[in-house]
Simulated assay, not measured.
Amino acid sequence: MFGIGDFARLGLVSVRMLRHYDAIGLLRPAHVDPVSGYRSYQAEQLSRLNRIVAIKDLGFTLEQVRTILDEKVSTEELHGMVRLRRAQLEAQISADLARLRSVEARLRTIETEGHMRTAEVVLKRVDPVRVAQLSARAASYESQDIGPVIGPLFVELCRRVEAAAVRVTGPGIAYYLPEDDGSVMVHACLPAAVTPGGHDFEVLDLPAIETAATIIHHGSMEAAGPTFQTLAHWIEENGFRYRDLAREISLHCPDDRDEWVTELQIEVVPAA
């Protein structure tokens, strides 16, 4: 038998926590001295304590912990719960980091107001191009919604194009089209020497852009806000208006996203 202090040290919990578990009937002492009220525990109770702490740390309430323990969850089931919770936490961390990067990018956009690089904008014609394409839906145009969609799309498209032994003829292209419900259809494309039919990807011809306002963005696309807004200012200041066709051309995509080089293209027409 172990006193409550020794049992707490062995179980890596606090005495206060053990007293609380006793009070709510989650982990009763093996023996309570009727005179002194001194609590004693047995080593075999560490097994229940381990399960209580593990399940509670997965985000369950103590009442839910009690229900789970009463159902006699096996070690294998507990491992499954841990794996599921781990995946949930990793997804939450990823979403929080994406949100943080989005806030930082927005702050950089604010900092660059009044210092737009409009001299770097080039007006040109963009030729039509045949592409292999995969598409998926994103919740919005926000980077934390677009990023988790466009990245895996390109990975999967590259895999399928390589498996089909199709020759890629140019850098990757991304474009986005709004849906009626406010979501965005994300399109990942690879210029390719390919004929339609018989593929597990779409084959289509992206039309020419007769007049495109273009600019080179250096860095991750999560930080592209200032560059897009530079284009917006240039379009307005030079007597053009935006049309509904915009593309991102991945000119250089190393592992370090801060080293990415992307050409942003927006179709424009005279405002008058």
Rank of each mutant, 00 (worst) to 15 (best):
A54F: 10
T67Q: 09
R28C: 05
S47F: 15
G59I: 05
S40A: 14
G59Q: 07
A30C: 10
T67D: 12
I24A: 04
S36W: 09
L26V: 11
L62R: 01
Q42T: 15
L27I: 12
R66P: 00
V65C: 01
V32M: 07
Q64A: 11
H31C: 08
L62Y: 06
Y41I: 07
I55E: 02
R39P: 07
L62E: 04
Q64P: 00
Y41D: 02
H31E: 14
L27T: 02
P34G: 01
A54E: 14
V65Y: 02
T61E: 10
L27K: 05
L58M: 13
V32S: 12
D70E: 10
L26M: 11
G59P: 05
T61L: 00
I24N: 03
A43T: 14
T67K: 08
L49V: 09
F60L: 10
Y38D: 08
R28M: 12
Q45W: 11
G37A: 09
Y38F: 11
I55P: 01
L27A: 10
E44Q: 15
L49M: 10
A30E: 13
L62F: 09
N50T: 08
T67P: 04
Q64W: 08
V35W: 09
Y41T: 06
P34S: 02
I52N: 03
D33A: 03
V53N: 05
V35K: 07
R51L: 06
D57M: 11
Y38P: 04
G37R: 13
F60C: 00
V35A: 06
D70N: 06
E44R: 15
D33T: 07
Q42K: 12
V35H: 09
D70T: 04
S40G: 12
A54I: 15
T61A: 06
Q45G: 05
L46I: 11
K56N: 12
A30H: 12
Y38S: 08
R51F: 03
A43G: 14
A54G: 10
E63A: 11
V35M: 00
P29I: 05
